[in-house]
Write a protein that binds this DNA or RNA. Structure first.
Lengths: 122, 122
DNA sequence: TCGCACTGTTTACGGCCGTAGTCAATAGCG
DNA sequence: CGCTATTGACTACGGCCGTAAACAGTGCGA
C-alpha cells in the first residue's frame, strides 16, 4: 500500500501534519515558499499523495478537505530506519560516532543527549 | 560537480569503498547479490558514477580500474545531514529522542552512546 | 592471421519525479 | 439566467532511475 513519499510530496505532508484538514488552496498558501510552486503543482502533489494512500479527502461543498493518513511519526521512523540501516548497519551508535568524529556535535548536543539517555534509564 | 548518488549507484560505491581499485568485473562479482544484477547493469552504473564524478578510472591494458573519488565519510555525512535537517530541524537530539520514544533503542545502544559521549568530553 | 571472448559505450524503455498548463464542471455574481 | 472565477482531473514533458540488451573495438588463442 503506502508507497514511498517523494521529496516534494513530503513538503506537502509537512503542511498537513501541521494542521488538518485543509483545502488545496490552504495547502498551497502554507507550503514552504522557498519552493516557489504554482497552485497547480500543489494540486498535482495532493493527487499523487491520494493515489499513494498517504492522505485522504472528504468533500466539503465544491472543494475537498485533505488530511494525512500516515502519521508523521511513522514517516519519520521509516526514513530514519532506512538511513541507519543503509549506512550504519542498523545501529544508532555508529551514526552518533560518525557525527562526533566530524565535529558535527556541539557541546549542547552532547549534554542534551546525555540528559535524555539518563532519563530513559530512569 | 558531485551530483547526487542514487540508491543503486550507492550499492556500487560500497564495493569500491571496501576495496579499490577494481575492474568492472570485480565490482559486479562483489556487489550485493541480493540485487540480482546482470554485469551490464553494473557497467551502466559505473558509467553514470563516472559522469557524476563520484569515481574515476584509469586504463589498465584492456580494461579500466575504478576507484572512488568521494570519500565514504563525506557521503555518509551528507546523507545524515540531509535527513537530520529535513526531519529534525538540523539537530541530532530530536532524532535520538524519537527513536527512544518508539522503543527503537536497546539497552545496549543506550549504554554504548553514553560511553561514547563520556569519552568525547575527555 | 582469424575469429572469439571480453570490455567499455550507446541505446532502450517503462516508471517516478518535479513542475505546470489545459480542460471540464460548477457555484455564485451581476 | 448567463458569465466568470474557482476547483479538481487530465495531460504533458524533460529528467533521473533501475535494468539491461545491442553494438563496437581489440588482444589472445587456435
Amino acid at each position: 500500500m503506502a508507497d514511498r513519499i517523494s521529496d516534494a510530496e513530503h513538503a506537502v505532508m509537512e503542511v498537513l501534519w501541521d494542521d488538518a484538514p485543509l483545502t488545496a488552496q490552504d495547502v498551497a498558501e502554507r507550503v514552504d515558499p522557498g519552493r516557489g510552486w504554482s497552485a497547480n503543482t500543489v494540486k498535482t502533489l495532493l493527487g499523487r499523495l491520494l493515489a499513494k494512500n498517504a492522505i485522504s479527502h472528504e468533500a466539503d461543498g465544491r472543494r475537498y478537505l485533505y488530511r494525512p493518513l500516515v502519521a508523521r511519526d511513522d514517516y519519520v521512523s521509516g526514513e530514519s530506519r532506512r538511513l541507519i540501516n543503509r549506512l550504519f548497519g542498523g545501529r544508532l551508535t555508529p551514526l552518533v560516532a560518525h557525527l562526533a568524529e566530524r565535529d558535527e556535535l556541539t557541546a549542547q548536543d552532547i549534554a542534551e543527549i546525555e540528559a535524555l539517555l539518563k532519563d530513559l534509564k530512569q
